[in-house]
């Protein structure tokens, strides 16, 4: 069985491939986003417990909600950084002209 952690790491490597080969600055920003998506999947996999329920209301056995919460914070950082990087690209274009 393939686990979400493994898929997460594979997606991170795809993002890394983008960073290594793509010259287009927007594609570089997108590659960083791909890495962050892989990271989110990796963390969700970390919190998963086989056969457990959602962590809403007390139940017998639940998945670990902490990694998911951590990833919300990371996603916020990701959104902020993406907009900042795109704004910088626009400014750079204007400077070159």
């Amino acid at each position: 069985m393939i686990s979400p952690e493994l898929v997460g790491i594979m997606i991170i490597l795809i993002g890394l491939y983008g960073l290594l080969t793509k010259e287009n600055l927007i594609k570089i920003v997108l590659s960083i986003n791909v890495i962050s998506i892989g990271l989110v999947l990796f963390f969700i996999g970390v919190g998963y417990v086989e056969g457990a329920d959602v962590p809403i209301m007390p139940r017998e056995k639940v998945v670990d909600p902490l990694p998911a919460t951590l990833m919300l914070t990371t996603l916020v950082v990701d959104v902020a950084i993406t907009s900042l990087a795109l704004a910088l690209i626009l400014r750079m274009r204007r400077e070159e002209e």
Binding site: L19, I32, I35, A85
Partner: peptide, 15 residues
């Protein structure tokens, strides 16, 4: 831009 991209990559690897 360069600073942001590398620093961000480092953060993700750190997490």
């Amino acid at each position: 831009f360069k600073y942001a991209i590398f620093s961000l990559l480092a953060s993700y690897i750190f997490i």
